[in-house]
Write a protein that binds this DNA or RNA. Structure first.
Lengths: 213, 213, 213, 213
DNA sequence: CATGAATGAGCTTTCATTCAT
DNA sequence: TATGAATGAAAGCTCATTCAT
């Protein structure tokens, strides 16, 4: 008789659970000491498992970091998209509110745990060429996503008709990126909020004084 | 007639020259294969010198990468400051022109050789904690510099009086950063110029359609 | 039935065994070729193990030599003290017999394997300052031990009342030391015994002809 | 016309002088940091000469240490033999005085500069097999020399007729050796004199209380 | 003759990975 | 399935020695 009636046995669930724990432990280690300075033994020791066990769950050191980064990217993408479909708004005011909401989501992820931006932006690109490409892919995806929001705005007329959608998307994402990096040095929530507002102001009002030639 | 008129002998000049070559070779290697995947032997082999020779010029592997990054930072800082003092302009139009000039300088450095942004932004932060801090320091310096430009503009009245100088500086630098990263995937000069213009448009015109609520 | 009755598992016993073998192999190598001329690879090769394995048992090269010397010192100290408490005898005759016994013990250790004095007296002091100090410490301990024997004899009246206990202890140990060194060139047991007797004669009869002014 | 009429030109004299200085500098370095921890560059730096120059005076590192040890041995041998021919005395009293003189000579050499015994006894034997043999040779020579003194005393009747000349010589030299080693830890002249007296007492009076069975 | 720049053999040490238990 | 002992490739670094200047 099986111990579980569901499609996933208890053993399988435990396996999956440990897999999860290994990823989390690896995240901790990589963020704390860096990918290259982290040994498989460090990850295993943090969980109190034998380091041979690690290889029953992941093929090698390179494999685990892929999963760790996968996780981070998924979390960020979720924050960028949940409840915020590109075509969910119809006016500039709504759009600005949506952008603010997205910013708050990002602050929740990046700001709550500085290890997230550290790993994603500072550690991952230096691991190897393939990982650097993955990070670039992520940036490109973010560009596409932001561009979709902008295209929607242009189509509906609340954004400039002559907007260089791709370029502007990169510019906006750059401001977000910069904010994420700033959190590494300035982790206070107030700073984060202030930065988010500055970004919104630049987006909607520019920097020029009204009426200045 | 002496072989050298200056205070530097021929031998010293040759020494300095080789030192330079080692830094350049290290730059090549680090950009190509990454810091961790590069061995001292790789750098030496690239120059056709013995790897022991390397240690006559640099104390260890960590030492050389510091010098390589020093070089890059110096180059970027030079591009940001030469002929472009923060208080050199007096009107919004001039300022915009100045910003465009700075952008072109950056394109010359980042765009001409994508290894520069790759090393500075992708490789360096992952080397170790100290180097990551150096990169953050660099970002902070850039923030200060940009903030100085903005403060000047606020003081002279051609930039918004209520500008969050620090936050806006970070936002602007983020757009620059994003452009630099974009060059890794889109190295065509046309793309670079287009991106630069998009950044300027966001800065000066924002993204909103005129008259949109 | 359990494979092991004691608190030490089979694996632990094997581990301890290999540890012992490494110490012994290191002893062989150091005695044969000297500390500095011996590589970790030599020690490992002698056992047919990978040189990485060495580092699972000892922190570094300096660590192993400490253990090797520890062993030697322990062996010599055991020989000097076993069955020969300083206060175990009461007459000059008994003391002389005790000294002869101790001498025979030392011959068993030093004489049986010339590598023991070679390593302890010739190799160890030249390893580094710390090891030289250890050897000096060992000499001082031996001085204390011999001095205890002498003090006992003075107290009981069978040794000269005006004996410079410390100085005499060093003198006696010097004769032992010299005998140990002599074994490196003259390993024949007969020579060793003859030397031991000469030392005893000097101790008890001096060198002067009876009645000589 | 030659600058010097003698058989040794000025240039040759200067050469010889530098050679001497190199030996002395090497002695300093070896005694201070040990043979293996001393680099040729250290020796050269101490003299302010280029380390390439070293090789114009000595074939290699092994060569110089031979000369340094040669020097030490010569100094010790001189102290043991000068004004103290084995056959210069005729009575026990004179012999004892002679032994005391020799002891004082040794104290002058060993005691005045602890680096001498350190290098000769602690550093040299560990350099390599050949040097260890040289040190053993030195001990054997010292044995022969001391044995010559003893033989003379036996022949003249002031030393025991049944003296084991060789063994006793080794025993006596052992006491001297021990005194030399003691100086490394107890460099005060008073200690040294006390030790010398203890050795003489053992030699002439033994350790037994008069009349003890 | 003096120099020190160049060299590479050779060392110690690390650690990802394998595999017998 | 979990383990950790064993492994050796690979790296950083030193320094005695050479030799062109």
């Amino acid at each position: 008789m099986k111990p579980s009636a569901g499609p996933v046995s208890r053993a399988e669930r435990k396996k999956e659970e440990l897999r999860r724990e290994i990823i989390d432990a690896a995240f901790d280690c990589f963020a704390e000491r860096g990918y290259h300075a982290t040994g498989i033994a460090d990850i295993a020791a943090r969980l109190g498992i034998g380091h041979g066990t690690f290889y029953r769950y992941f093929a090698n050191k390179r494999d685990i970091v892929d999963h760790v980064i996968d996780d981070l990217v998924a979390r960020v993408v979720a924050a960028l998209t949940e409840e915020n479909a590109p075509d969910a708004v119809a006016t500039l005011r709504d759009y600005r509110a949506q952008a603010a909401r997205i910013g708050e989501s990002l602050i929740r992820i990046f700001g709550a745990d500085p290890r997230v931006p550290r790993l994603l932006l500072f550690e991952a690109p230096g691991i190897d060429r393939a990982m650097a490409e993955r990070v670039l892919d992520f940036f490109e995806s973010a560009t596409s996503l932001t561009a979709a929001y902008l295209t929607h705005g242009v189509d509906l007329g609340y954004l400039r008709a002559d907007l260089d959608v791709d370029g502007t998307a990169r510019a906006i994402n750059g401001m977000i990126l910069s904010s994420a990096i700033a959190m590494l040095r300035h982790p206070e929530p107030a700073d984060q909020r202030r930065l988010g507002e500055a970004v919104l102001r630049v987006m909607y009002d520019g920097i020029a004084a009204p009426g200045s030639p």
